[in-house]
Design a protein around this nucleic acid. Sequence first.
DNA 1: GTCGAGTCTGCAATCGGTTGCAGGTCGTGT
DNA 2: ACACGACCTGCAACCGATTGCAGACTCGAC
Lengths: 333, 333
Amino acid sequence: MAATIRDVARLAGVSPSTVSRAISLPGMVNATTRARVTAAVEQLGYEPNRAARGLITGRTGTIGLVVPDLANPFFASITKGVQARARQHDVAVFVADTDEDPAAEAGLVRALSKQVDGIVLCSPRATDDELTAIAQDTTVVLVNRTAEGILGITYDNEDGMRQAVAHLVALGHRRIAWVGGPATSWSTQHRGLGLRNAVEELRARLVPVGNFAPTYEGGMAAADQVLATRATAVVAYNDLVAIGLLARLHARGISVPGDLSVVGVDDITMSRMARPALTTVRLPKQEAGRIAVELLLAMLDDPESSVGTQGTLHGELIVRDSTGPAPYNRKVP
Amino acid sequence: MAATIRDVARLAGVSPSTVSRAISLPGMVNATTRARVTAAVEQLGYEPNRAARGLITGRTGTIGLVVPDLANPFFASITKGVQARARQHDVAVFVADTDEDPAAEAGLVRALSKQVDGIVLCSPRATDDELTAIAQDTTVVLVNRTAEGILGITYDNEDGMRQAVAHLVALGHRRIAWVGGPATSWSTQHRGLGLRNAVEELRARLVPVGNFAPTYEGGMAAADQVLATRATAVVAYNDLVAIGLLARLHARGISVPGDLSVVGVDDITMSRMARPALTTVRLPKQEAGRIAVELLLAMLDDPESSVGTQGTLHGELIVRDSTGPAPYNRKVP
DNA sequence: GTCGAGTCTGCAATCGGTTGCAGGTCGTGT
DNA sequence: ACACGACCTGCAACCGATTGCAGACTCGAC
């Protein structure tokens, strides 16, 4: 059906090898024959068959992306970034959704690894050991977490949390609640750490209220416990949780930010549509996806380079309407 | 590096052809040799190289998915459905995001079509002619729209709109505004049509307020025009638009559903988190993705069958808090 | 005139599977 | 004992590209 390299060769009056070289090593062939070849390519609308090329070169020109949940806007944005940058490099992206099932993940990665040159992996829950096992026989770039000896791109959670705390302290808050995500999640650990450092530095108190699902429901579940802490502000694991908090607080008749200020993390689309619009630490999600692709492709080009081994992106506090001055009557010295 | 069919053959003491058949045509090989082969496969962790197989069979075992915007929760859900069902069939999915640029689309599809067996295409804006041109040389399944002679899966918009109108009429609404999406969009046209039929049948009035971007901003922009119609209820093109309406109405001090009832379409995750929680026509999005894959694979297996040529899915009205009885003082005879 | 260097170009092997065809073995019927 | 079919298995060609190697040709220098 489609034109093969032989068709092009015949039309151009050269051998297939010459066509191949004219395309991938233009310097090696005479300018006039190269012109004949490109004309023939043009005329037939020839595109090299990737499977055939991959067979001999061992490279498929394809990368895999594994995410916990495509419907989660955070991962959707990362996917978008990965996809856009990969296309610029003429690399196709296989997308796989593990449906939040860390157990399925390893199998999926293994299956995928046979078909791709490398994998971009968003795996907040997997253990370091699982990840190093995976990275053994596949080139992997981690997004939003680190693991010993594996390439990755992460956010500077410590700095992001410092920005949030500084904002709250400036508003007069001294007692700040923290709604963590899953205890095993890399982000939960680092955000908690950053928060502890920041409150210490800025002379405030941090009141952790435990670990919750990183979802709207998780936020709803956490809200009453947050109120019980008598904190005047709360930092949520992510925006989904913060929006859940907002909903339950509204139902309880608590005014945000009048009685309680709420800060999220991520800045998903939904956040500016929340009521009140959510103050949050914006994480450059598409950028993370783009950089992950760059790291992966660089690693594939030159496995020795261990390029940078690790990228870090900074968050940016976006102040909206869910944070305000601490209420006098609840302030705690 | 990885085991080849020859390694397996050597270990099992048979020829590569026998290994190949033991895997893909088990009935053709003797049970005992088949056992030896599968044991060897197991031991070596052998997986057939897809590129090599694709070269000879002409099938890549891969499908493409083209969507306007992965960050749009509607398309994210469809992607999720496609991806899940494809995996069940051991088919990989290339995902491409056109970034809402219909012009880029044709090129993308063409590039993709060389690498996949078929394509699932979400293309609300493309013209019928463009689509038929694309379907000329690639197997395509359309999602959420139809085009002459092309396989597709759509929603029964007429029925969905009838449900919404019936609900509103039962609440006493007689004058219903309609905020349309992009004029060229297939869904806008069919929803508008369904709405006109429904109001006629149910003895209400429909007041179209024009075409807006299918976004939160689109809804914000439409809100004041909706109020000017003196309608007591409004149906929005989709949930994003409805949520935009909600935001602007709140800013204007309009009570929903006290003064005005709002209905969306899609039921994206965000909708139940809106304030008030949004009444909407739920479209089974993942289901659409799954069915699209089934249609595509069936078509690829037997191109003659023209299987069904068209699937239709029904929406379901989800009543939440954004709809209520029509206010007496605004009711119009 | 010969030689050497430099520059293309073609031959043929190769990647890892699949499949048409031929051949071998075995059992059964006559 | 022979023929025949059924059932398996192996040989070898093939899919469409890439690439090491060698041959051809040009040009300049000695």
